[in-house]
C-alpha cells in the first residue's frame, strides 16, 4: 500500500515537473508576450497542480494536505486573474500581438466578429 501510494505520488511529481519545464521552455521559445502567456499557463495549471497533487499523496490525510489544497485553490484563483491583468494592461498600452504564422510577416487574422 505504501509503495503503491509512493509510486502514484512520484508519477504525479515527475509529470508535474516535466510540464513545468515545458512551460519554462515555452517562455523562452515562443515569439511574443501573448503567446508566452500560454507557456506560463502550462506551468501555472498543470505544473503546479500535479506537483501539489503529488505532495498531497505524500501528505496523506493530515493538516499538510489541507494546506496544500489551499495553496492549489489560491494559485488556481490568482493565476488567471494576474494573466488577464497582464494581457489587458499590455493590450491597453498598445502592445500589438503577433498574428498569423510567425516568420511570414503578414497579419492575416484581424479580430473578426463571429
Amino acid at each position: 500500500m505504501e509503495t503503491a501510494l509512493d509510486i502514484v505520488s512520484w508519477v504525479l511529481l515527475v509529470t508535474g515537473s516535466v510540464f513545468a519545464m515545458i512551460g519554462g521552455l515555452g517562455l523562452i521559445r515562443l515569439p511574443d508576450v501573448y503567446t508566452r502567456m500560454h507557456g506560463a499557463g502550462i506551468t501555472d495549471t498543470m505544473g503546479a497542480g500535479l506537483i501539489l497533487a503529488g505532495l498531497m499523496v505524500q501528505g496523506g490525510f493530515s493538516q499538510v494536505t489541507v494546506k496544500l489544497i489551499l495553496i492549489l485553490i489560491f494559485l488556481l484563483y490568482t493565476s488567471p486573474t494576474s494573466t488577464y491583468a497582464l494581457a489587458n494592461a499590455a493590450f491597453h498600452r498598445g502592445q500589438k500581438p503577433l498574428l498569423g504564422k510567425p516568420g511570414h510577416g503578414k497579419e492575416d487574422d484581424q479580430p473578426s466578429k463571429p
Binding site: 517562455l27 506560463a40 506551468t43
Partner: peptide
C-alpha cells in the same frame, strides 16, 4: 510575466 511565473515556482519550491 516571467517574474510572476518565477514567483509561482518559488511557492512550489518552498512547498
Amino acid at each position: 510575466l516571467a517574474v510572476n511565473m518565477f514567483g509561482t515556482k518559488t511557492v512550489l519550491l518552498i512547498a
